[in-house]
């Protein structure tokens, strides 16, 4: 009898529990709400934080497109967005070196070189600003702002170009003007 009892006991203890699905008393709906209300960073982490927390790009209101198993979008490979773009940037940058050094060496530039300097600075700025816009205003994050800034950047090339065209034709030119204001 004692032997039987131990066998049964062993069987009972070895029997796998049926409670594989552990559920709490909290209904799913409340659990989801509680998750959403929870502060972004738990108290445990806040305890280690001594300074004010500043996130570099806090998430904006989310809009889920497609589903989580969609493949990442890869833009079409195009040399005008890659190697040509890169090379154009370098050519403009390198071209600006003699044009910025020349006024220091030989005084003011001829109107033609002065105009070239203005034009290259505008192109250099356009490419520089577009890199900044691409970096800080990603399409997936702020699509509207990105469009707006890209358009403003494009428009500015013509507005500023026109402005400097007027300045170069009606005034003394950019290098001479800087020289006069600087030594005033």
């Amino acid at each position: 009898m004692a032997a039987l009892r131990t066998t049964v006991l062993r069987q009972v203890l070895a029997a796998p529990t049926q409670r594989t699905l552990v559920t709490s008393a909290m209904p799913m709906r409340f659990a989801a709400q509680k998750l959403a209300q929870r502060p972004a960073f738990s108290l445990q982490r806040a305890a280690f934080q001594t300074s004010a927390r500043r996130s570099i790009l806090p998430p904006l209101p989310q809009k889920v497109r497609g589903n989580v198993n969609d493949a990442a979008q890869i833009p079409d490979v195009d040399p005008t967005h890659g190697s040509y773009h890169w090379t154009a940037e370098r050519i403009i940058s390198v071209g600006l070196i003699p044009l910025t050094v020349a006024p220091f060496a030989a005084g003011s530039l001829s109107p033609l070189l002065d105009g070239t300097l203005c034009g290259l600075i505008i192109l250099h700025t356009y490419l520089g600003f577009s890199s900044v816009i691409t970096d800080y205003l990603p399409k997936w994050r702020v699509p509207l702002m990105r469009k707006l800034f890209d358009f403003a950047n494009f428009l500015a090339v013509f507005v500023v170009g026109w402005g400097f065209y007027e300045f170069e034709t009606n005034d003394v030119g950019i290098t001479e003007a800087i020289k006069r204001i600087w030594t005033a």
């Binding site: 989801a32 998750l35 959403a36 929870r38 996130s55 570099i56 998430p59 209101p61 989310q62 889920v64």
Partner: peptide, 20 residues
């Protein structure tokens, strides 16, 4: 599920810390 649960969950994902 995507609009309420997933969208809300994405708001509490860890964010890269600032440059400091």
């Amino acid at each position: 599920a995507t609009e309420s649960i997933l969208a809300k969950q994405r708001l509490v994902r860890p964010v890269a810390p600032h440059l400091s």
